[in-house]
Design a protein around this nucleic acid. Structure first.
Length: 721
DNA sequence: TTGTTCCAGCTTTTT
DNA sequence: GCTGGAACAA
């Protein structure tokens, strides 16, 4: 047994955590301190040294990506496939439990998982049937309300009627929503967690089984767990103290979606015999970056307390750039990236981070204009696309005729002459008689109250679904999906659409068929569930790799939130302005402000070698010119770690601005970032930076042969090429 | 049924 | 000031 392979790559603190006997354990892992490594090696240790069978280990993460990575690394370390290991997201594991114990959880065998888009549509429709004005009851707010209740483990039946009208109405909606989901066999994301919790809470034999089965439970990113997730973990590990959690209170940035940082404190109360291990050695960033980040986070109260350090040396200072406006900011960042690439850096090692998605545009425009390849994270995922959702809706109806959300989605897509009137009648019947839309449609036809044309159209739709169900009954998943995509009329619909938009949609549908072909259901066959249902659940739970790895080396653009867990050699933290970052909505509330500060901490600690902070002195926001003050976070970094960069010579002042002095302009007029120049002694090079003005003006040039040099413009006699 | 116009809204996001 | 969705007209 080769335990050196497990232990050698670890430092003392990591080794302590990995080899600790089974007990409640809290590993406080700072950014870049080897958090995943500890989890992976811990699990490998338990299997290989402690002799635990793989199926007795559970590891829970928040994203599919993290789960996948962990499984891969464990298999790599153990050098064997680890299918028996239960590694997955909270939602994935909850889903698995509910499939296995659908009856005990009071769910139909064919229940379908709704993603948040589906949920929103269901709510919109519900508000309609309740005759509620959706400007007074914005669907998003309702959705937020319902999910917030579920995240806290509260069902409508637990709530008491209050005098508050708003509250009362919300409760009424919540109740109707629950009824509707029940009737349609629909389960939203929050419901997965809540049901799984209730399953363990109410069915002692089920709980007992899993308590025995899982001898070790591991949790990644513990600071992001919400109330119901933690309650579920507690049930599972009650009285055994076999809960091993890894997290970082300083990186808790999801409080706004229900994450409870308090779970870390509660953990220490609930598990009396727990041990805490801090991982503070950082293997990612330079000393300067870490010190600056430490200084910022030190402004937060009530931390567990942790200070990152490295033995990798100080590195360069952090660069601070005060841009004239947001255009100038983008220009500066893009020029720096070009210089980085000129010096041999990879574009994919450079990341532009921002607080809000709206900020990406200015960078995209500049990158596009200069022909620098880039990739924006976030945005539409594969399974979120309308054409894919439509195809999936057909498939869902095959599996579950009562799925109202899907019924409504495709009843007239592609258009088949079923208008608003017919649909309204169906909804009415469904509501009055407590039926699904499908059943209500049949009732409506039998009433013979409609025109022949409408009746035929409706019959046509029902027949289409029945036909498809019959034809695909005996087919495998791939053939099923293929046939449905072909016969649903969706392909024809999108082919008719003009421009390449429609073409892209057809391609996406082909891709869906392909995904079905490649779908690997072996992993979950034990769930004795049809392949189709497994595939549909997969589609809801894994919204799809939204960034199909394009092979071109490209600059990475993303929000600070999506940067968590990633690292880049060169990082630009843009828009460091009051009102933007920290965001306006957070400045009045201490806890929200502290979350913004943690976000800043997360952003800075993404940088491995060089960190740039930028802000604009003027910014166009919502169509208005604003003059924000630099972010307070900038003041929280001691000056010794910061170097101010100037590039004013290249700023394009608006026409109304005071004319700059002729002399200073003359000197710098032709010198711009990225300008190719030639020097008598050093040869050809590219300008990287400009500093100072007049006689003091200096340029930094990257020479092909001589390397990077600072030169006084007054003496250098550079020739512009 | 489709194209146009109007209007609210505007952090962060995974499942 | 732009975008996406909904209401509206043809």
């Amino acid at each position: 047994m080769d335990i050196t392979k497990i232990l050698d790559p670890l430092n003392d603190a990591q080794r302590l955590a990995v080899t600790a006997p089974s007990q409640a354990m809290l590993v406080l892992a700072g950014a870049g301190s080897g958090k995943t490594r500890v989890l992976v090696h811990r699990i490998a240790w338990q299997i290989q040294v402690e002799g635990l069978p793989a199926h007795s280990i559970l590891a829970v993460t928040f994203t599919n990506k993290a789960a996948k990575e962990m499984r891969g690394r464990i298999e790599n370390l153990l050098n064997l496939p680890a299918q028996a290991l239960w590694i997955g997201t909270f939602h994935g594991i909850a889903h698995r439990l509910l499939r296995r114990h659908a009856k005990e959880a009071k769910l139909p065998e064919t229940f379908q998982v709704m993603d948040s888009g589906d949920q929103l549509r269901v709510i919109k429709r519900l508000l309609n049937t309740l005759n509620m004005d959706d400007s007074r009851w914005p669907p998003r707010e309702v959705q937020w309300y319902i999910n917030a209740q579920k995240d806290e483990g509260i069902r409508a039946k637990h709530m008491v009627e209050t005098a508050d009208i708003h509250q009362r109405q919300m409760l009424r909606i919540y109740r109707s929503y629950e009824e509707l989901c029940e009737r349609s066999g629909l389960v939203d994301f929050a419901e997965l967690l809540l049901r799984a919790h209730e399953l363990l809470r109410d069915k002692t034999d089920v709980l007992d089984f899993y308590q025995r089965r899982f001898r070790q439970v591991h949790v990644d990113e513990f600071q992001d767990t919400n109330t119901i997730q933690y309650a579920w973990l507690r049930l599972l590990t009650e009285g055994r103290d076999n809960l091993f959690v890894v997290g970082d209170d300083d990186q808790s940035i999801y409080g706004w979606r229900g994450a409870k940082i308090e779970n870390i404190y509660n953990f220490q109360k609930h598990y009396q015999n727990h041990q805490v291990i801090k991982l503070e050695q950082n293997y990612r960033s330079t000393g300067t970056i870490l010190k600056a980040a430490n200084n910022i986070i030190a402004n937060n109260a009530g931390r567990m307390g942790k200070e990152l350090w490295t033995d990798a040396g100080e590195g360069d200072k952090i660069s601070l750039y005060a841009a004239f406006n947001e255009q100038d900011e983008a220009y500066f960042v893009v020029e720096r990236i070009r210089a980085w690439v000129n010096e041999g850096g990879l574009r994919s090692d450079a990341a532009i981070l921002y607080r809000s998605n709206a900020q990406s545009r200015q960078f995209e425009e500049k990158l596009m204009a200069t022909g620098v390849p880039y990739r924006v994270y976030g945005g539409l995922r594969f399974f979120d696309r309308a054409e894919i959702k439509n195809a999936l809706a057909f498939l869902r109806l095959l599996s579950n005729r009562d799925d109202d959300a899907s019924f409504e989605r495709v009843i007239n897509t592609p258009t088949r002459g079923i208008g608003a009137k017919t649909l309204d009648d169906i909804r009415c019947i469904a509501r009055d008689q407590g039926l699904s839309l499908w059943a209500a449609a049949i009732v409506l036809i039998n009433q013979r109250s409609m025109t022949a044309r409408a009746t035929n159209a409706l019959i046509g739709f029902l027949e289409l679904i029945k036909q498809l169900a019959k034809q695909t009954e005996e087919l495998g998943l791939y053939e099923k999906v293929k046939l449905v995509v072909e016969k649903s009329g969706l392909v024809e619909l999108y082919q008719k659409e003009k421009m390449d938009k429609g073409e892209e949609k057809v391609e996406n549908l082909e891709e869906l068929v392909n995904a079905a072909r490649l779908f690997n259901f072996d992993q979950d066959t034990q769930e004795n569930l049809g392949e189709l249902d497994m595939f549909l659940a997969h589609a809801a739970l894994e919204s799809g790799d939204n960034q199909a790895d394009d092979y071109e080396d490209s600059v990475q653009l993303m929000t600070l939130h999506s940067a968590k867990g990633l690292e880049f050699k060169l990082v630009f933290l843009s828009g460091m302005e009051e009102g933007l970052f920290p965001s306006q909505q957070s400045v009045d509330d201490v806890s929200r402000l502290e979350e913004e500060r943690r976000l800043c901490y997360v952003g800075m600690t993404r940088a491995m070698r060089q960190l740039y902070l930028t802000y604009a002195e003027s910014r166009r926001l919502y169509g208005r010119e604003s003059y924000p003050r630099p972010s307070r976070f900038l003041r929280e970094i001691p000056g010794e770690y910061i170097q101010e960069v100037r590039m004013r010579a290249t700023v394009s002042h608006p026409v109304t601005a005071v004319q700059p002095k002729a002399s200073s302009l003359q000197a710098t007029g032709s010198y711009k970032l990225g300008q190719r120049v030639s020097h008598a002694k050093f040869g050809e090079g590219v300008i990287l930076q400009l500093e100072g003005s007049g006689a003091q003006e200096r340029v930094q040039v990257n020479f092909k042969q001589a390397g990077v040099k600072w030169l006084m413009l007054a003496y250098a006699k550079l020739e512009v090429l």
